[in-house]
């Protein structure tokens, strides 16, 4: 499970398209009140069962799929290159972030969060729809990040299904916020990694609940 901590939280928006149930914990995290610079913790939600026997190999495979999917999506849709770099997002970033997330449920269940600096999100939206950044509004940028997240996790889902981990996807959701980070809690296996695109760091968080 992932909790977003909004430190010096100024604004956020959500773009929930349809069934919000698998992202219920996210909503709870979003609705939790920020307390100064302290970490805002969120209690386990009833929909999350205790973890058992999660395959570490599977989460590594998913990370690999996310990296390949992100590379393909950014290259094809945006004509941008994105590459994996060492490290993990341990501290809140200084910039405004746009976070796209898509859940998956089935033989492999979890969610993937793709946190993009707002400046890169604007560049991506401009590249995707062929408009100047000044012609974009936040909803358009949200829509682009939602769709890019959907494509990346769609690639992951295809790979999972083709290797026997059949699952279905939730519709994507998008959050915005300043100075936020992804915090791990103990109910699920997590893996975080970083990618870089046009000198902007993209943070990926994979959350996996699996009985495989």
């Amino acid at each position: 499970m992932v909790v977003f901590n909004f430190l010096s939280f100024r604004r956020f928006s959500t773009l929930l398209k349809g069934n919000p149930l698998p992202l219920k914990f996210l909503l709870k995290a979003l609705l939790a009140k920020p307390i100064g610079n302290h970490v805002v913790d969120v209690q386990p939600m009833p929909i999350c069962k205790p973890m058992t026997a999660v395959s570490i190999d599977l989460i590594d495979e998913i990370e690999n799929y996310v990296r390949r999917g992100a590379g393909d999506v950014f290259r094809t849709m945006l004509n941008m290159e994105v590459k994996a770099i060492e490290g993990s997002a341990s501290e809140p970033g200084n910039s405004s972030m746009v976070v796209g997330s898509v859940g998956f449920a089935g033989k492999a269940s979890g969610a993937i969060f793709i946190a993009v600096p707002e400046s890169l999100a604007n560049e991506a939206a401009s590249a995707m729809v062929g408009l100047l950044p000044s012609e974009l509004d936040p909803d358009m940028v949200n829509d682009v990040i939602a769709e890019l997240s959907n494509m990346i996790v769609g690639f992951v889902k295809s790979q999972l299904c083709d290797t026997g981990h059949t699952c279905v996807l939730t519709v994507p959701s998008v959050m915005r916020g300043d100075h936020m980070k992804v915090q791990r809690v103990s109910l699920a296996k997590n893996k975080s990694s970083l990618m870089i695109c046009n000198r902007h760091v993209v943070s990926i968080e994979i959350v996996l609940k699996s009985d495989v």
Partner: peptide, 9 residues
């Protein structure tokens, strides 16, 4: 035209 492009789908 879908991101849900696994063989089964």
């Amino acid at each position: 035209l879908s991101a849900d492009g696994g063989t089964a789908s």
